[in-house]
Design a binder for these strands. Structure first.
Lengths: 135, 135
DNA sequence: AAATCCACTTGCATAATGCAAGTGGATTTA
DNA sequence: TAAATCCACTTGCATTATGCAAGTGGATTT
């Protein structure tokens, strides 16, 4: 008998999303998985934003509990764990792309390549397909 | 001489967005402005999620500083302040709609009306136009 | 003039995040 | 095969963010 469900603050969909990834780090981990091809703990640890080890461990655990990512042992090396996105995690891609578009519009110093923004404006669907294919 | 800019953790667009609204409350305030027609402090205070007064005040202040909302005195009553979305705030709508679509897919008990989801899948652009027109 | 409304602020408790160091098992190196 | 290193964490403690309850002061209503 598992009792996993915390009581939600409301039945609002924005709130549902916020309760899952509405913290300072979760979406950056999802980003690393979706756009940067990262899969190992040490890779997430080396991201530009410098997450600390305890926070990374706790976020990875929560994301797994919430079903956004999976964790498996690397068959080449039993000491390594491989993290991957579930479908539920992959399905955050459209939202993240809108977030990127918004930031590109309002951040003068955005790191997003112009070519990426062009693709996003030009043919979002095929960009989504390409990114998913690359996973 | 104003020095407003905090140093960013990185130049990543996801991080840019997170540093602006990556907390537990900001997007719920934006939601109230975008979808629920709220404009007064007391209205935000009465949302289902029950934000506390000090957090609401500090979030409204930060959202104003970040240029997502504006604050004005109600011409009918000098004791009341009217909050409204700026263009920068309104431009979060597409992202929020993707968030709603994701939550509707994965939350069995989502509060989103089926008709809204249908419109979202069916003709996102006209839904966006309608919502903006209603502001 | 007194009561009420409104948008907050203040003070204090709890929870989340941040930093540095440590742990233990698996793998690599000598 | 013993020692060093790698890897994915955990632990302890400091700082910051959030949560709760009460209070404040100006504007409006009674």
């Amino acid at each position: 008998m598992k009792r996993n469900k915390k009581i939600a603050r409301s039945d609002c969909p924005i709130n549902f999303a916020q309760e899952i990834f509405g913290d300072k780090w979760s979406l950056l981990i999802i980003r690393d998985l979706l756009f940067k091809g990262k899969k190992y703990y040490s890779e997430f640890l080396n991201s530009d934003e410098k997450i600390s080890t305890n926070i990374l461990a706790s976020r990875l655990g929560q994301l797994e509990t919430d079903g956004l990512i999976t964790k498996a042992i690397d068959s080449d090396n039993n000491a390594k764990k491989i993290y991957a996105l579930s479908q539920k995690g992959i399905d955050l891609l459209p939202m993240l792309l809108e977030m990127i578009a918004w930031s590109a519009k309002y951040d003068d110093e955005t790191g997003t390549p112009a070519e990426f923004i062009r693709q996003l404006e030009d043919d979002k669907e095929s960009l989504i397909r390409d990114l998913i294919a690359a996973l």
